[in-house]
Design a protein around this nucleic acid. Structure first.
Length: 129
DNA sequence: CTCCTGACTCAGC
DNA sequence: GGCTGAGCCAGGA
Protein backbone atom coordinates (compact mmCIF):
# COMPACT_ATOMS: atom_id res chain seq x y z
CA UNK A 1 0.00 0.00 0.00
CA UNK A 2 1.88 2.91 -1.23
CA UNK A 3 0.86 6.22 0.13
CA UNK A 4 0.40 8.78 -2.55
CA UNK A 5 0.04 11.53 -0.05
CA UNK A 6 2.71 13.87 -1.23
CA UNK A 7 1.84 16.92 0.71
CA UNK A 8 0.57 17.08 4.21
CA UNK A 9 -1.47 20.17 4.57
CA UNK A 10 -1.24 21.38 8.10
CA UNK A 11 1.59 19.24 9.28
CA UNK A 12 4.93 20.14 7.90
CA UNK A 13 6.04 17.60 5.39
CA UNK A 14 6.13 14.36 7.22
CA UNK A 15 9.29 13.46 5.46
CA UNK A 16 10.90 16.38 3.68
CA UNK A 17 13.80 14.09 2.99
CA UNK A 18 12.21 13.24 -0.31
CA UNK A 19 11.66 9.64 0.76
CA UNK A 20 8.27 8.01 0.77
CA UNK A 21 6.12 8.54 3.77
CA UNK A 22 7.26 5.39 5.45
CA UNK A 23 6.87 6.95 8.81
CA UNK A 24 5.01 5.58 11.68
CA UNK A 25 2.35 8.15 10.96
CA UNK A 26 1.50 6.80 7.55
CA UNK A 27 1.35 3.28 8.81
CA UNK A 28 -1.20 4.46 11.29
CA UNK A 29 -3.17 6.16 8.57
CA UNK A 30 -3.22 3.05 6.43
CA UNK A 31 -4.36 0.83 9.25
CA UNK A 32 -6.97 3.34 10.32
CA UNK A 33 -8.40 3.40 6.82
CA UNK A 34 -8.80 -0.36 6.94
CA UNK A 35 -11.16 -0.14 9.86
CA UNK A 36 -14.47 -1.57 8.65
CA UNK A 37 -17.54 0.58 8.95
CA UNK A 38 -19.29 0.10 12.23
CA UNK A 39 -16.08 -0.99 13.89
CA UNK A 40 -13.70 0.73 16.22
CA UNK A 41 -10.23 0.09 17.53
CA UNK A 42 -7.82 1.50 20.06
CA UNK A 43 -4.64 3.47 19.66
CA UNK A 44 -2.71 0.81 21.46
CA UNK A 45 -4.07 -1.92 19.18
CA UNK A 46 -2.95 -0.07 16.11
CA UNK A 47 0.41 0.73 17.61
CA UNK A 48 0.83 -2.90 18.62
CA UNK A 49 0.02 -4.11 15.14
CA UNK A 50 2.67 -1.78 13.84
CA UNK A 51 5.15 -3.21 16.30
CA UNK A 52 5.19 -0.15 18.50
CA UNK A 53 2.70 -0.93 21.22
CA UNK A 54 4.50 1.51 23.44
CA UNK A 55 3.83 4.29 21.01
CA UNK A 56 0.10 4.54 21.41
CA UNK A 57 0.51 8.27 21.81
CA UNK A 58 2.09 8.51 18.43
CA UNK A 59 -0.98 6.89 16.93
CA UNK A 60 -3.12 9.63 18.34
CA UNK A 61 -0.57 12.17 17.27
CA UNK A 62 -0.67 10.80 13.77
CA UNK A 63 -4.41 11.23 13.81
CA UNK A 64 -3.70 14.87 14.25
CA UNK A 65 -3.08 14.99 10.53
CA UNK A 66 -5.72 12.42 9.67
CA UNK A 67 -8.11 15.11 8.58
CA UNK A 68 -5.50 16.52 6.24
CA UNK A 69 -4.59 13.25 4.57
CA UNK A 70 -6.26 11.82 1.54
CA UNK A 71 -8.21 9.73 1.48
CA UNK A 72 -9.43 10.84 4.80
CA UNK A 73 -8.79 8.66 7.79
CA UNK A 74 -11.76 7.56 9.90
CA UNK A 75 -10.21 8.83 13.08
CA UNK A 76 -13.61 8.70 14.69
CA UNK A 77 -13.31 4.93 14.70
CA UNK A 78 -10.23 5.13 16.84
CA UNK A 79 -10.67 5.44 20.55
CA UNK A 80 -8.57 4.76 23.60
CA UNK A 81 -8.39 1.37 25.22
CA UNK A 82 -11.37 2.18 27.42
CA UNK A 83 -13.53 2.84 24.38
CA UNK A 84 -13.70 6.44 25.39
CA UNK A 85 -13.85 9.10 22.68
CA UNK A 86 -10.70 10.73 23.81
CA UNK A 87 -10.17 12.46 20.50
CA UNK A 88 -13.65 13.85 20.03
CA UNK A 89 -12.43 17.20 21.22
CA UNK A 90 -10.05 17.33 18.32
CA UNK A 91 -12.67 16.98 15.64
CA UNK A 92 -14.30 19.85 13.86
CA UNK A 93 -16.96 19.66 16.51
CA UNK A 94 -17.00 17.65 19.75
CA UNK A 95 -20.17 15.98 18.58
CA UNK A 96 -18.83 14.98 15.18
CA UNK A 97 -17.10 11.88 16.47
CA UNK A 98 -19.95 10.25 18.31
CA UNK A 99 -22.30 11.43 15.64
CA UNK A 100 -20.37 9.53 13.01
CA UNK A 101 -20.10 6.47 15.21
CA UNK A 102 -23.81 6.43 15.92
CA UNK A 103 -24.43 6.83 12.24
CA UNK A 104 -22.47 3.65 11.66
CA UNK A 105 -24.48 1.75 14.18
CA UNK A 106 -22.18 2.22 17.13
CA UNK A 107 -23.86 3.38 20.27
CA UNK A 108 -22.10 6.13 22.13
CA UNK A 109 -22.93 7.11 25.65
CA UNK A 110 -21.19 9.63 27.81
CA UNK A 111 -18.33 9.88 25.32
CA UNK A 112 -17.84 6.14 25.51
CA UNK A 113 -18.48 3.38 22.99
CA UNK A 114 -21.09 0.91 24.18
CA UNK A 115 -20.29 -2.74 23.54
CA UNK A 116 -16.80 -1.60 22.75
CA UNK A 117 -15.35 -5.09 22.50
CA UNK A 118 -18.26 -6.08 20.33
CA UNK A 119 -17.46 -3.34 17.86
CA UNK A 120 -13.77 -3.67 18.45
CA UNK A 121 -11.74 -4.39 15.36
CA UNK A 122 -8.27 -5.75 15.75
CA UNK A 123 -5.75 -4.42 13.20
CA UNK A 124 -4.06 -7.78 13.40
CA UNK A 125 -6.96 -9.08 11.35
CA UNK A 126 -5.25 -7.73 8.29
CA UNK A 127 -2.11 -9.62 9.09
CA UNK A 128 -3.69 -12.80 10.31
CA UNK A 129 -5.89 -13.55 7.34
C1' DC B 1 20.61 21.41 20.35
C1' DT B 2 17.46 21.38 24.49
C1' DC B 3 12.90 21.54 26.54
C1' DC B 4 7.90 20.92 26.33
C1' DT B 5 3.81 19.05 24.78
C1' DG B 6 0.64 15.47 23.15
C1' DA B 7 -6.15 12.15 20.38
C1' DC B 8 -2.13 6.74 25.26
C1' DT B 9 -1.05 3.16 28.58
C1' DC B 10 0.73 0.87 32.52
C1' DA B 11 2.39 0.60 37.22
C1' DG B 12 2.28 2.42 41.80
C1' DC B 13 0.05 4.54 45.76
C1' DG C 1 -10.97 2.40 42.86
C1' DG C 2 -9.36 7.02 41.37
C1' DC C 3 -5.24 10.00 40.98
C1' DT C 4 -0.20 10.55 39.84
C1' DG C 5 4.03 9.62 37.73
C1' DA C 6 6.75 7.76 34.30
C1' DG C 7 7.58 5.81 29.54
C1' DC C 8 6.79 6.05 24.92
C1' DC C 9 8.28 8.71 19.94
C1' DA C 10 7.92 12.70 17.20
C1' DG C 11 7.57 17.47 16.20
C1' DG C 12 7.38 22.46 17.32
C1' DA C 13 9.50 26.59 19.69
Amino acid sequence: MVLRKKKSSKLTNIRPSGKKEDNFFDLVYEVARQIPKGKVTSYGAIAASLGAKSSARMVGWAMNGAGGTRPKVPAHRVVNRNGMLSGKHHFATPDAMEKLLKKEGIKVKDDKVLDFEKHFWDPMTLLDS
